[in-house]
Amino acid sequence: MKTAASASLTSQIVNPVISATVDTFSMMLDSSITRTGLGLKRPDTSFYDITAIIGLSGKSAGSFCLSFPATTAYETVHRMLDMEVREITPLVCDTVGEFANVIAGSAKDKLASLELEMGLPNIVHGTGHNVEFPSNSQPMLATFDSEVGPFMLAFGFVERG
């Protein structure tokens, strides 16, 4: 029953997260985005090259991940800062982390009833990495295309108490 409740909670979070992502890409990059997929995250799903992970907790608890291929991250830095980068530097990781921060912050505002507190972004990079979610959560995965390239979001939440 707890897994069903967590699935319901996670699905309740989908629209605010996607809406926050659309707004953030529009504001920060002047880019529209197109959703190319939405479904449950499989345990063996590989993330892209750079993933920012943010923990949120309140009346529910969970994680929000934003994952960029390196090329999407480079183009994002180029658009934001007019800089050419061709390797994963601290600035590139910071940029992905800041995007995750803004999207999660905006989604949190739309989910005020959950009274979530947000942590700082942690960054993982490397080819073919995965991020594990709590076993009793049913994390969702959404994939997108944008003017800076493809990217994905994964998020899973469980009820507390």
Partner: peptide, 11 residues
Amino acid sequence: DSEMTRMVAKK
């Protein structure tokens, strides 16, 4: 703490 945000603000 975000270098990117500082750079955007400076710009």
